[in-house]
């Protein structure tokens, strides 16, 4: 079953202001099946983050059609989209995006609070997720008192509280050291394997990408190629590095 479908997505910046026009995405089509673990890679400025923002409904495309779980999100209004996001989509960001004035636990339940779920349900969900991602001891702490890895695990838990159909992650390991990166990617693996949730992430990090089942490479607003994991993670890692070399360009950076 296809959960996410994008058809000829075009995004042009600077069109209205009449200044220099930049074409960030020039007609990208892709589809993601339920339970898939997909990474999008590409050089800086290739349009990765723009694509993710459009796919997740944070940004609007200039043209093109996207559907998530059968809903055409490009036709939704701003507030409709917001409601859709918090019910159907989970988000993980590079800079964690936790609220400083809330404790870890409160940050996790925030989407449920917005959904006006019952207190018992929230408590239960927090306990399950905290157990899964091993953050029980820090539930009462504030974000500035915990490590980056812990913050990101909090953010992952938050992304999952409303049982979304799909999780979008924008450079989830970008601000983390390698040990914390491993922990986070293992979290995503758990999400896919145990919770059967689809994960779509954008990353620079080949190590992070190697955890995925499929990697899509984009360059200059087009899909360049994609590879699917067949063997072990190590083999897949080498494949990704090879593919990036093909993608080439001086802008490539790890």
């Amino acid at each position: 079953m296809v959960i996410l479908e994008a058809d000829k997505i075009v995004k042009i910046y600077g069109e209205t202001s009449g200044e220099s026009v930049t074409k960030a995405l020039s007609g990208i089509s892709l589809s993601v099946k339920q339970g898939e673990f997909v990474a999008i890679m590409g050089p800086s400025g290739s349009g990765k983050t723009t694509l993710l923002n459009i796919l997740s409904g944070i940004d609007k495309p200039t043209s093109g059609v996207m559907t998530i779980a059968g809903h055409a999100i490009n036709k939704m209004k701003r507030d409709e989209l917001a409601l859709f996001r918090r019910k159907q989509i989970g988000f993980v960001f590079q800079e964690f995006n936790l609220l400083d004035s809330l404790t870890v636990k409160e940050n996790i339940i925030l989407p449920m609070v917005l959904e006006k779920k019952s207190a018992a349900e929230m408590e239960e969900k927090v306990q399950t997720l905290a157990g899964l991602f091993e953050i029980e001891p820090i539930l009462q702490k504030y974000p500035y008192n915990i490590s980056g890895g812990q913050q990101q695990r909090t953010a992952v838990s938050r992304a999952l509280v409303n049982n979304p159909g799909i999780i979008f992650a924008d450079e989830p390991t970008g601000n983390l050291d390698s040990k914390s990166s491993t922990a986070i990617m293992e979290c995503f693996e758990k999400i896919v394997q145990e919770l059967k949730t689809t994960v779509l992430l954008v990353t620079h990090d080949v190590f992070a990408a190697s955890y995925c089942q499929k990697v899509i490479f984009i360059k200059d607003g087009h899909i360049h190629s994609y590879i699917v994991k067949k063997g072990s993670r190590k083999e897949f890692l080498n494949q990704i590095i090879d593919n990036l070399a093909v993608l080439g360009g001086r802008t490539y950076d790890i």
Binding site: I58, A82, L114
Partner: peptide, 12 residues
């Protein structure tokens, strides 16, 4: 902005 990404509506 953070809350918006999580899915808060303008009305909220």
């Amino acid at each position: 902005q953070k809350l918006y990404k999580i899915g808060i509506t303008a009305r909220e």
